[in-house]
Design a protein around this nucleic acid. Sequence first.
DNA 1: CGTTGCGTTGAATAAGGTCAAATAGAGTGG
DNA 2: CCACTCTATTTGACCTTATTCAACGCAACG
Lengths: 195, 195
Amino acid sequence: MLVKRGEHLYELDDPIGSIYSVIAGTFKTCTVTERGEEQVLGFYMRGAIMGLDAMATGRYTATAIAIEDSQVCIVSLECLQEHCLQDTSVAKRVHAAMAKEINSLQRMMLLLGRKTADERVASFLLDLAATYRSLGYSSSDMNLVMTRAEIGSYLSLTLETVSRILSSFQERQLLEVKQRHIRIVDIEGLERLSG
Amino acid sequence: MLVKRGEHLYELDDPIGSIYSVIAGTFKTCTVTERGEEQVLGFYMRGAIMGLDAMATGRYTATAIAIEDSQVCIVSLECLQEHCLQDTSVAKRVHAAMAKEINSLQRMMLLLGRKTADERVASFLLDLAATYRSLGYSSSDMNLVMTRAEIGSYLSLTLETVSRILSSFQERQLLEVKQRHIRIVDIEGLERLSG
DNA sequence: CGTTGCGTTGAATAAGGTCAAATAGAGTGG
DNA sequence: CCACTCTATTTGACCTTATTCAACGCAACG
């Protein structure tokens, strides 16, 4: 299925219909805090599975939005559960996908709880580079699909702080930043900085 | 199986052997940051399932420690996977437990990312009260099993901040605090405060 | 009693946030 | 192609919040 930039794949609190595997493009998932602020919970690219969070309550706990023109594969819930019964390897893979989600959320808790703004941005860039690499793209020359505000929301920083830190990384010769285009110059330096 | 206060149920990076269902007592799970600081990831009481995080990589991503004398039921991994195959309802329950873990981690991300220290402590107390209530204990008269340092680590605050906030809540007539014993006086007030 | 671990409180400091203003691109319509 | 607009980004000055460092209190226990 094709999803245009800005379109919602599913909504927070919608009853679960399917889970989704990303074929191409990029999505963000976000919730809304009690005060009505939007919080980005994650970015999902090719190979990622979205919607697993809904398997507890039967309702999605986040809204999924395409941040560039994208494509997903829809997996209906019944279909998934049948396959799980018939084939151990499918069940294992679903478990693994959920556990992976748990792991990445735990990492995120550590980042939000214990890391400074510099460390968060450095970690984010390194994670992104690793994801790009694993997808076969250049891991040093990156074209961000997300805005400073989205990065900030994801890392729980203001967009101003994100911008300032990218500028300071550039001054320190760790990066070259030109708007959405970022080139990693000194990956070891970033790793040292990432906490 | 009985686990004494302070004993480790499993260690970060241990290969997965089993998952555990808490019968009695309380556990904390924690990891260590790159800098070597301990971070509490969660508290687990009767009915909770621990160890699901290991199903991605096959290794536990946290250390589980009893913070009071406790008792767990051990579920071996093979046993669990067999049951999943034979019985849809078991598979569903495992999925649900994992999804619940995902949900609580997402909530935690929101707390760490968007809430002030006051809001975090208020949320923590309300969550704890709700858990106690669901287990059939008093939800207003609580005997904390965790130290200020553990609460602080969980909420990503220093123990001093936790202590100060508990004192300020007492001044504001929201709580009565006497060391580990906390009585919730004004639950609506706390809810308003919790963000 | 003295020791030890946990908890409380105060003063100084630093890290990010907030508010405000300037700049840079991308897209649009004439 | 150019002017106009809208949005994203950058940068500066100031302020708030929680941390840090330090001292002290309290209760349990040998």
